[in-house]
Every structure is written in structure tokens, then in C-alpha cells.
Nucleic acid binder design. Structure first.
Length: 599
RNA sequence: GGAGCUGUGGUGUAGUCGGUUAACAUAUCGGCCUGUCAAGCCGAAGACCGCGGGUUCGAGUCCCGUCAGCUCCGCCA
């Protein structure tokens, strides 16, 4: 690959190292990059010169000049050099078949050391096993590794595909504010103090939700944005305090069109980046079914192990735990672990403990053997019922059955967790996309003793469920949907409320007073009253999608400068104490004891 | 807020039942070496075992606390 902009006499590079091929043989080339491995044979030195494209072998021969050779001897790892030389074909016995540039090498005639380097704290090469602490502290060195550069590149390609694809459907990329106002509900906001109005704060957006709706009222019709979002909550492997969404909103579009557009986008990404053809359309599954069958609103469909309802059979037992759950209006559900006989008694105790921590009162279990059940609870069941349960759960000798009897939500949640926990190892990458639909509009918040939006307060209820809005809010289904891939929620969206009257009713149900609604969402209610079009959209988690495309478990791998689990940046030291002067300007006084502060 | 795992030369690891000199590889530095590509050979230097306290005649090892990283629960409209 020739670099047209870099071919002038004054430039350091005419080619990229890894892009050189036999086509350039006999050319004079100028290269620049980092010194990788150095193989010093005394009178002959080989250097792997690395740039973002890959590496090529440089050769220095003592017989071709002492001065240049002495300079080559002084090179160390990660020195930055510019060289000039002849690209030559290696003799047959010197070809390295494991290197893309293994048939060629550069006989250097001129070299300048552009910069020296301290000995790096870890090797700049792929497949390294080094403490993540170090990688994050020296992230710029970590990024020099080809593996990491390829992640950046793949992310760039994905984003470009998204932009071009949405552009081809007349979506317009529009920017929205980063300094906005804090809204109730949802995640904890990151706050930014106002200097001009002391005591007041901006919030960084958790998502551009309201702005994109206002863009619909503003007549944009098809909007998207690759946008940073901020949530001040505890981190996970797939959660960072700042992350990137592919944010989409449409007017006059309808959710069917939206599904089709999104499925097309996923198909494009998987085809262009992984060469995989996705089967369209994606499966759709109601929330209730996902919970009943898989105990999760983001089920991993790469393996079976479905939860089985055994309420009717449980009712025929003398097991008090089952009977009590049922008479309280709860459920009894089971999970069959194929080959579970390898679980030890301690494993089962651990699973029981885990179930308790997840909210269940306990975990019942039985081994399935040729003769039937081997279980502490076998005595509460007739032989007939035991056989019928075994059959209902599709169990064969060698399996273990796990049961939870509790409120329906607890049964689903706990067994769903155990299902994931006990999933077969080494599941192949096999994209099982699905839409989860028919989410409830609300859930009950035990702590606050009120209803919370399951999605967000701007989600439209399903028209036919509107009649329950006052009588039985929990029965109202939302026009909301999540996009799920192999157990990961990669996006979610909804049709929005577009009339101020319905929006007002929802705010009221959520426990906002008239004044509070007016105060915090007055601008939205007002906007809706000026001819808001029917609209809806969704947001995709870009980091998660890229991580899945790359095959990483953690989104830190695809974020160039991520935060640790304690939300710190090990490279810059953020967050950090600020100067007294800065606080004074903001009229902020810290409540922290002096002794607690660093510095 | 809670639970679990990890922390030993620059890096990756070993270190038994608590026992005296903390081992190995690699990187680093020096020497030899003209076809290596994880170059090779010879030599040198490099650790108060995350930090603090305790038990003990004696602690890398046991106990308590603490810090950092990771994973999970809570949390994440």
C-alpha cells in the first residue's frame, strides 16, 4: 500500500511495514515505526520494525558500513526509528512462512532514531497474560499491541457501517447536549456544577432520550447519533460509567419498520465484519414467555435447559415448601441439569446458598438414578408423582433436578440464574438474536412503595391495555422491546407517548405531583402539546456489540481508555482532588474531613 | 453496600506441614557470535513476598485489618 500523502521527500514513510508485499521488491522504501524484537548476531542484526499495519524485518550488515551498524546496535525495544532501504526478496531458505511479510525484508541504508524508549513494563505482543492493572496504567503501550489496534479498527469499521447504513435510509445524525438537566428516576446522574449559577448543577446525559423526542417534535423524522452516555452506577464487565449508544428515533415509522431496519443493520454488521449470514427476521418472544421458559428477560438461546412449571404435580406432594408456595399464589418451577450427577453434595449446598442470596427460601434437588429419585425430599412424593415430574422435565438417569418454590418472579429469577451458572461450557459463537416484546409498563418498587417505569416514563402503553391503567397498572403492557443476543441485552426501545394527556397520567401514576411534573418535564409536556408526531426508537449498546463481534467478555477490551471496577482511570488518576480555587469559584464546600483528603 | 478470587525481582509463575540461602522462565545490562525470526551461548545485576498489625523461638506461608485489580449480587428508568 502506497501512501500518496506521505510520498514526498520530506516525509518519513512511503509505505506501511505490514502492507509491503513482493510487489514492491527492488523499490527504495522509507519506513518508520517502533523497534520490536531484535536479533543481534554480532556482525548482522535483524530488527522487527512495527507500525500499525504489522511488521517487517530490517537487516543491518556490518560490512555495509560501521556507522550505521553501530547505530543499529544501540537500538532497544520500542525505540522509534525512521529508515530508508531496499526492499528485497529473501532467499528461499530464509523465508518465514508464519509472517505475512516473511518473503521480504528491508536492507537498510539510512536510519534516524526519532526517539528512545525506556524498557516497557510488559511485552508489546499479542496473547499476553499481564495484570490488567499494568495494561490500564500504560494503556498507550497496550494499544500498540496488534490485537488492541485491531479492536480499534473493528470498532471504527462498525461505526462507519452504522453511519452509512442509516444515512442510506435518510437518517440524520444530530448532536444533543452533554450538559443537560438532571431528571428523576433512572440511574444516578453525574453532576457538573454551574459556576455562573452557584448551587445549580448540570447533569451529563444518561441517554439523549428527551432530546431525541424533541427532535421528532422538531420535524427531524429520522434521527440517529453515535453518542456517549453517562450513568453513575456500579460497574460490571459489560458496564462502564461512560459508554456509547447508537441512538435512533423515528416519526411516522411504526415499530415493524424499526425492527426491520435494526435487523438489517445487525445483518450488515455480522456479514461485513464476521462474514456471517444472519437469519431474518429475528425471533420475537414475549417477556412473560422468556421469564417462564428461561428465567431471564435476556435469554441465551444457545442451549436448552428450559425451566419447567410443575405446579400441578407439586400440588400432589406432601412437601410443605411446595404446598405453602402454591397456597400463597406462588409457583413451583424446576430446572433439569443434564449430567448433573457429577455435582457433589457440596456443589448442591453452594447452589442452595446462591439461591438464598438471590432471594429464594431454598433450593430442592434430586438426583435421577436408574431406580428413581435420590433426594432428601423424595419421602414427600409418591413414586407416581416422582416419575411424572421426571418425565415432565425430560430427565434421564445421570441428571439432577433443581426446584424453587416461591413467588413467580423469584422462581424465574433464581432458576434463570442457575441456568446461566450451570450452562454448558464452551458454547460456540452462534448468534441467536431475538426481540423480547410485551414488557410490563411498570414494576412495583418495594423500597419506595410505588410503581416505577419498567423501561422509562415516556414509553407508550399498549392501546388495548389502557383500560387497566388505573385499576391494575401492573397488568398494562408497554410498547417496549429489547434486542438480545446470546444472553446479552444489546439494545432496547419503545414507541413513545406523544400526547400530553397520556403522558400526564403516567407521571401521576409514577407518583409525580402536578408541580413536579410541570417543574421537571414541563418542556416535554408543552412540546407534546404542539403537534408531536407519533414516534419511537431505540438505543443499541455499541460497546457491547463491538465486544460481541470481537469475542470479548468485557467491554473494557473495546474501549481505548476504560475505567476500573472502582470507576477510576489508572492512567490519568481520575477522579482526583481539585484545587481549593476551583471549588471556591463554584462556591462548593466539601463535607469531607480534612484527614480524608489526599494532598 | 455485600460476597468471592487474585496480589512473590521489570514481567509471567513456583514456593509442600510455618523452618534458616525465596526458585524458574523471560526481560534488563555486559561479553561472544553473519541468516535469525520467541535467535543461540557465557556471565552479571535485580525481591525486604501489596500495605499495616497480630500469633510464634521463627511468617511469603497462619489470623485480623486495609488497599488495589477482577467477577458476581444489590444498583443500572
Amino acid at each position: 500500500m502506497r501512501l500518496p500523502l506521505l510520498s514526498g521527500e520530506t516525509n518519513l514513510k512511503t509505505h506501511h511495514c505490514g502492507a509491503l508485499t513482493t510487489d514492491q521488491i527492488n523499490l527504495k522504501v522509507k519506513l518508520a515505526g517502533w523497534v520490536g524484537r531484535r536479533r543481534d548476531h554480532g556482525g548482522l542484526i535483524f530488527i522487527d520494525l512495527r507500525d500499525r499495519s504489522g511488521l517487517i524485518q530490517l537487516v543491518f550488515d556490518q560490512r555495509n558500513g560501521e556507522k550505521l551498524f553501530a547505530l543499529a546496535e544501540s537500538l532497544r525495544s520500542e525505540y522509534v526509528v525512521a529508515v530508508e532501504g531496499d526492499l528485497v526478496r529473501r532467499s528461499a531458505e530464509n523465508i518465514n512462512p508464519s509472517l505475512p511479510t516473511g518473503e521480504i525484508e528491508v536492507h537498510v541504508t539510512k536510519m534516524e532514531v526519532l526517539n528512545r524508549s525506556k524498557t516497557p513494563p510488559f511485552y508489546i505482543e499479542d496473547d499476553l497474560t499481564v495484570d490488567e492493572n499494568l495494561r490500564l496504567r500504560y494503556r498507550y503501550l497496550d494499544l500498540r499491541r496488534p490485537e488492541m489496534f485491531n479492536r480499534l479498527k473493528l470498532r471504527h469499521r462498525a461505526v462507519k457501517l452504522v453511519r452509512d447504513y442509516l444515512d442510506s435510509y435518510d437518517f440524520l445524525e444530530v448532536e444533543t447536549p452533554m450538559l443537560t438537566r438532571s431528571t428523576p428516576e433512572g440511574a444516578r446522574d453525574f453532576l457538573v456544577p454551574s459556576r455562573v449559577r452557584p448551587g445549580s448543577f448540570y447533569a451529563l446525559p444518561q441517554s439523549p432520550q428527551l432530546f431525541k423526542q424533541l427532535l421528532m417534535v422538531g420535524g427531524v423524522e429520522r434521527y440517529f447519533q453515535i453518542v456517549r452516555c453517562f450513568r453513575d452506577e456500579d460497574l460490571r464487565a459489560d458496564r462502564q460509567p461512560e459508554f456509547t449508544q447508537i441512538d435512533i428515533e423515528t416519526s411516522f415509522f411504526g415499530s415493524e419498520n424499526l425492527f426491520a431496519i435494526l435487523e438489517g443493520l445487525m445483518a450488515l454488521l455480522w456479514k461485513e465484519i464476521l462474514g456471517v449470514d444472519l437469519k431474518l427476521p429475528f425471533l420475537r418472544m414475549p417477556y412473560r414467555e422468556a421469564m417462564n421458559r428461561f428465567g431471564s428477560d435476556k435469554p441465551d438461546l444457545r442451549f436448552a435447559m428450559e425451566l419447567i412449571d410443575i405446579e400441578r404435580l407439586a400440588a400432589r406432594s406432601n412437601f410443605k415448601v411446595f404446598n405453602a408456595a402454591l397456597s400463597d399464589g406462588g409457583s413451583v418451577k424446576g430446572l433439569c441439569v443434564p449430567g448433573g450427577s457429577s455435582l457433589s453434595r457440596k456443589d448442591l449446598d453452594d447452589l442452595t446458598l446462591l439461591s438464598r442470596q438471590l432471594g429464594a427460601k431454598g433450593l430442592a434437588w434430586t438426583f435421577i438414578e436408574d431406580k428413581g429419585w435420590r433426594s432428601p425430599i423424595a419421602k414427600f412424593f409418591s413414586a407416581e408423582v416422582m416419575d411424572e415430574i421426571t418425565e415432565a422435565m425430560g430427565a434421564v438417569p445421570g441428571d439432577v433436578l433443581l426446584f424453587v418454590a416461591d413467588r413467580w418472579e423469584i422462581c424465574c429469577q433464581v432458576l434463570g440464574y442457575l441456568r446461566r451458572h450451570l450452562a454448558p461450557q464452551g458454547l460456540a459463537k452462534d448468534p441467536h438474536f431475538l426481540w423480547i416484546i410485551d414488557f410490563p409498563l411498570f414494576h412495583y418498587n418495594e423500597e419506595e412503595k410505588r410503581f416505577d417505569s419498567d423501561h422509562h416514563p415516556f414509553t407508550a402503553p399498549r392501546g388495548e391495555d389502557l383500560v387497566f391503567l388505573d385499576s391494575d397498572p401492573l397488568a398494562v403492557r408497554a410498547q417496549a422491546y429489547d434486542l438480545v443476543l446470546d444472553g446479552v441485552e444489546i439494545g432496547g426501545g419503545s414507541t413513545r407517548i406523544h400526547d400530553p394527556e397520556t403522558q400526564g397520567r403516567i407521571f401521576k401514576l409514577l407518583g409525580f405531583s402536578e408541580e413536579e411534573s410541570h417543574n421537571k418535564f414541563g418542556f416535554l409536556l408543552e412540546a407534546l402539546s404542539f403537534g408531536a408526531p407519533p414516534h419511537g426508537g431505540l438505543a443499541l449498546g455499541l460497546d457491547r456489540i463491538v465486544a460481541l463481534l470481537v469475542g470479548d467478555d468485557s467491554i473494557r477490551q473495546v474501549i481505548p481508555f476504560p475505567k476500573t471496577a472502582a470507576a477510576a482511570c489508572l492512567m490519568t488518576g481520575a477522579p482526583a482532588v481539585v484545587d481549593e480555587k476551583q471549588l471556591n469559584e463554584l462556591k462548593i464546600m466539601l463535607k469531607v474531613d480534612e484527614g480524608d483528603e489526599e494532598e
